[in-house]
Amino acid sequence: MYLAGMAAIVVTMFLALARAAIGPTVFDRILAVNMFGTKTVLLIAVAGFLTGRPEWLDLAIVYTLVNFTGTLAVLRFARFGNLARDDRKPDR
């Protein structure tokens, strides 16, 4: 049953990757990569149960937070063109 779940997750990850590759706008790509990240979290969690090592959940937790921060950073970079300053007008 774990394998069935993992297969579904992997299929979803490929669909997300395809959208990230073809996505016409940069926002499509960020959306797809973020979805890929959350699916990775699920994959790690299920794989931990499959191999009988639920400690992998720690990795899943860390990956959730890294995914969140990373997506926001990329989004910010796409909008402002830098990661440091606050007070700039967005680049068109």
């Binding site: 579904a8 299929v11 979803t12 669909l15 997300a16 016409p24 959306l31 299920v46």
Partner: peptide
């Protein structure tokens, strides 16, 4: 698990069937 996998795939398919970013 299977139900969750089903909804995952549905979301992935929706990512391709919807025609516009906001819908995706």
């Amino acid at each position: 698990l299977v139900a969750g996998g089903f909804f995952c795939i549905v979301g992935g398919v929706g990512l391709h069937r919807f025609s516009e970013f906001y819908q995706r």
